[in-house]
C-alpha cells in the first residue's frame, strides 16, 4: 500500500517564474515526512508536484523527475489522472462536496473508478474509511445528511476518509490543521500516526511542534528573498532537525528567530 518516492533535480515553474529550485529528496514508505519553512518558500507548491496538482494552474510546469517506485510520474506516457488516483491529497481548508451527503462524499473518488460498486460493498467501504478516519462514531447515524453540516474538524476528517477510500499509495496533506481548533488538530495528528502504518504521508505545516510530534523526517524549505526561488535547505530525521540541524538557517527558523 505504501511506496517510496524519489525526487531528483526538480525545478518548479509558474510560467517563466522559477518558484522552487533544484529539489532532490527521498521519501520513505510508511513514514511521515514533514515540510516546514516560512510562507512563500514553496513547500506547498512542492507538495502539489507530488500528485501533479501543480499543473492544474495554467502555465505551471516542472523539470526533473519524481519517481514512485522507480516510475517517473512526469514520464511522457503517464496520465496525471492516474497519478492522482495513487497519490491522495487533503487540503488546507476542509472541502467536502457541499452538494453531496456524508456517504456520497466518501464514495466520490471510488465512483470515478468503479461505477458499478454494489450497495453492500459501498456501505462496507464507507464504514471502513470513516472508521479509519476516526469519524464513524460521530456520523454513523447521519450518513445521508450533507457533509457541509459537520464541524470543521469533522469535515477535514471526512476529507481524509474520502482520500483514503480510493486506497492511494501516498497521502499528501497541505497544512491540514491550519483551519482547525486544537482539539480537532489533535484528532488529526493522532490519525496521521495511525495512517502511517498503511500509507506514505507527506505533510506541509506551519506549526513546528506539529512537525516534531507527527513526522519521522523533516525537510526545511527557505527562500532567499521575494522573487527568488524557494530551496530545500536541509532534510534529516525529525529528531536531528529539531536538536542539531547542520544549517544555521534551519536552526534560526526552528528556534523562532525568523519566519
Amino acid at each position: 500500500m505504501a511506496q517510496r518516492i524519489d525526487v531528483k533535480d526538480l525545478n518548479i515553474f509558474y510560467s517563466d517564474f522559477l518558484a522552487v529550485e533544484d529539489v532532490s529528496m527521498a521519501i520513505e514508505p510508511k513514514s511521515v515526512t514533514a515540510f516546514i519553512g516560512p510562507s512563500g518558500c514553496g513547500k506547498s507548491t512542492f507538495l502539489r508536484t507530488l500528485n501533479r496538482m501543480h499543473e492544474v494552474i495554467p502555465g505551471a510546469r516542472v523539470e526533473g523527475t519524481v519517481a514512485m517506485e522507480g516510475v517517473d510520474l512526469y514520464g511522457d506516457d503517464v496520465d496525471p489522472v492516474a497519478v492522482r488516483r495513487q497519490v491522495g491529497m487533503v487540503f488546507q481548508r476542509p472541502n467536502p462536496f457541499p452538494t453531496m451527503s456524508i456517504e456520497e462524499n466518501v464514495l466520490a473518488g471510488v465512483r470515478l473508478v468503479n461505477k458499478k460498486i454494489s450497495k453492500s460493498d459501498a456501505a462496507d467501504l464507507v464504514e471502513e474509511s470513516l472508521r479509519h478516519a476516526n469519524l464513524w462514531e460521530e456520523v454513523k447515524d447521519r450518513l445521508a445528511k450533507p457533509g457541509s453540516g459537520l464541524s470543521g474538524g469533522q469535515q477535514q476528517r471526512l476529507c481524509i476518509a474520502r482520500a483514503i477510500a480510493v486506497r492511494p499509495q501516498v497521502l499528501l496533506m497541505d497544512e491540514p490543521c491550519s483551519a482547525l481548533d486544537p482539539i480537532s488538530t489533535l484528532a488529526i495528528e493522532d490519525l496521521i500516526t495511525e495512517l502511517k502504518q498503511d500509507y506514505t504521508i507527506c505533510i506541509v505545516t506551519h506549526n513546528m511542534q506539529q512537525a516534531a510530534r507527527v513526522s519521522d523526517r523533516t525537510g526545511f524549505f527557505n527562500i532567499a528573498g521575494t522573487g527568488k526561488p524557494g530551496k530545500l535547505i536541509e532534510m534529516d530525521d525529525t529528531g536531528v532537525m529539531f536538536s542539531s540541524p547542520s544549517e544555521q538557517a534551519t536552526e534560526d527558523y526552528i528556534s523562532g528567530r525568523f519566519g
Binding site: R84, R85, G88, F91, V166
Partner: peptide
Amino acid sequence: LHEEAALALGAT
C-alpha cells in the same frame, strides 16, 4: 477548492 478536491481524487 471543490474543483481541486475532485481533481485530487483522480477525476478527469
